[in-house]
Amino acid sequence: MKNFTYKSPASLKDASQLLGDDWSQSIALAGGTDLLNLMKNEVETPTRVVNLKQIKELNKIEYNSGYGLKLGALATIAEIAAHPVIKAKYRVLHEAAREIASPQLGNMGTLGGNLCQRPRCWYYRNEFPCLRKGGDICYAIDGKNKFHCIIGGGPCFIVHPSDMAVALMALDANVTIFDGEKNHTVPISEFYLLPEQDMYRETVLKPGEIVTHIYVPDVGSGEKSGYFKFKERGIWDFAVVSVAVMLRKKGKTIREARVTLGGIAPKPWLEPHVSENLINLVPDEDNVSAICDQSLRNAFDLGQNGYKILLAKNLMKRMILKLAS
């Protein structure tokens, strides 16, 4: 790891100033569980590391009935997994947090870091000067692409690795960003970018900007949610494919639905075909299967990742039927 100067500002304003306007010089540190590995492999070689953890206002989890949930960016994954209100009301968030890494990393890793973590593409993480690192080819196209994206890709084919992002997208959360002067808020669906929008960054964040809070709307009556993550191994791992579903039913009829997928696209993927067609449906195995089978029409196989298409459809079906019953 290259050496650097280390700063621990106590205010957001100072932190933003220290981060400055050059991604390659100065970088934010929260739990460090992603950043340290990136620095070790010299994918990131900052000359200054800005520790966010001394900014006290960012570590709270607050819930107000009628208003919803306010999550500080420094809340840890373990705190989110253990929070009683989240466990009772926001199942999808609870289940996603429980699925992340190991207890050690859950105690260290933060929500903000989870949302802003960098891609796991093995070419990107190792010594390949690929497109995303400013080079001129994507090694995944003719290389090992078993875990790359099936939709939304090109010219780079990463998947976004965050479990929390997929869950928060199903809950229609908002992300608050401090730009050095003031806060602004964007829906999480607009927080992430596809490679065709920005080849080098996965989010709309600009240098010096810091994620401060995530807002999740209050849970309506008849609302249920859940997360399922398919992993290659029994223990912790990144998602091969994951699905987050929020359904609100009135009687037997679905009134509102948000179905999002992880592990298949460069950003958490809201599947509009499924979400829209579930509305006003009295769900049963046949009609839910038919809707899911018709989804992901633009998905394509890079050579080794075609299995994800069927897997994603089946996981959606399974989770929708589970919540609908």
Binding site: S8, G32, T33, L36, N37, N51, K53, Q104, L105, M108
Partner: peptide, 11 residues
Amino acid sequence: AVASCLLLAGQ
């Protein structure tokens, strides 16, 4: 419990 291989001195 935390992983000491991913913690920096400053932290």
